[in-house]
Amino acid sequence: MISSLFFLMALLLLLMALRHWFLLLRSSLVIDEHPWSCGPLVTFSRTKGEFNDNLLALLSNSPPGAVPFPTLASVTPPDDLIGPTQDDFGGDDVVGILQASIPPTNHIIKPLAVIFSTVISSKLATPPKAPVSPILVIRESALISTVNIHRPRLNTKAHLMLTTTEIVAHLICNHVEADPSLVVGKVDCKNAFNAIHMEPILDVIRDELPILLPFAELLLSMAPIYTVPSTITIELKAPLCTL
C-alpha cells in the first residue's frame, strides 16, 4: 500500500516536471514578431468584402503612418511586357504581374510567371536578358512560386507556436526570401489518399515495421462495403453507423 502511494507520488512529480518542461519549451518557441515582415504598417489590396469595408473605416481614422496599399493590376498582357518576351521562352505563354512594392505612378512591369508546355523549355538553362522573378507554373504538374515576397506587417505582437507544418512554411519563406534565385515547386496530387496503391505501403511496412503488418493489412485490404448515395444529405457529426 505504501509503495503504491509512493509510486503515485513519484508519478505525479514526474508529470509536473514534464509539464514545467513543456511550458518552458513552449515559451522558448514564441516569436515576438515576424522576422520577415516588411512594408508599410497597414497594408491591404482587397477592394471588396465586409472586411475591406471595415478596414477602410478603420484607415479613415487611423494615424498618418497607416496608409492603404494601392490596388494593383493583377495580370498584364504578354505584349506589354518589359524585359523578356514570349519569344525568349520559346513561344510558351508568359504573363506579367506588377511588383507589389512599386508605387502605381511608376509602373514597372516585371514578368513573374511563365507557363510552360508539357516539355520543359531548355531556355531556363540560359537566363533571359532581363531578370525574371522565378514564379513558374508547369502545366499539369506543379506551381513554383518565390521571391519578391512582401508580407503584411503585423501591428501587434505575433505569437506563433511553431508546428511542424509552420516550420516547413517558415523554412520555405525564409529560403526564398533570402535567396532570390531559389524557387519552390509544389506537386499536388489529385485524390492522393484514395489513389495511392496499397502495395507500396505494405511493402514499406513489411520491410521496416513488420509488427504493424497485420494491422495495416486489415485496414487497407478491404474497401468500405456501404457507400453513401449522393442523394442522401449527411448530417454532420452524425455517426456513420446510422446510415
Partner: peptide
C-alpha cells in the same frame, strides 16, 4: 499517383495552408 492537378497561374501557393508568394 498519376493524376496531378493543374495549379492555376496565380502569384503564390499555399504551404500547409500558409500563403506564400506575391504580396
Amino acid at each position: 499517383l498519376t493524376q496531378l492537378r493543374y495549379l492555376p497561374s496565380t502569384a503564390g501557393l499555399e504551404v500547409g495552408g500558409t500563403p506564400v508568394g506575391h504580396y
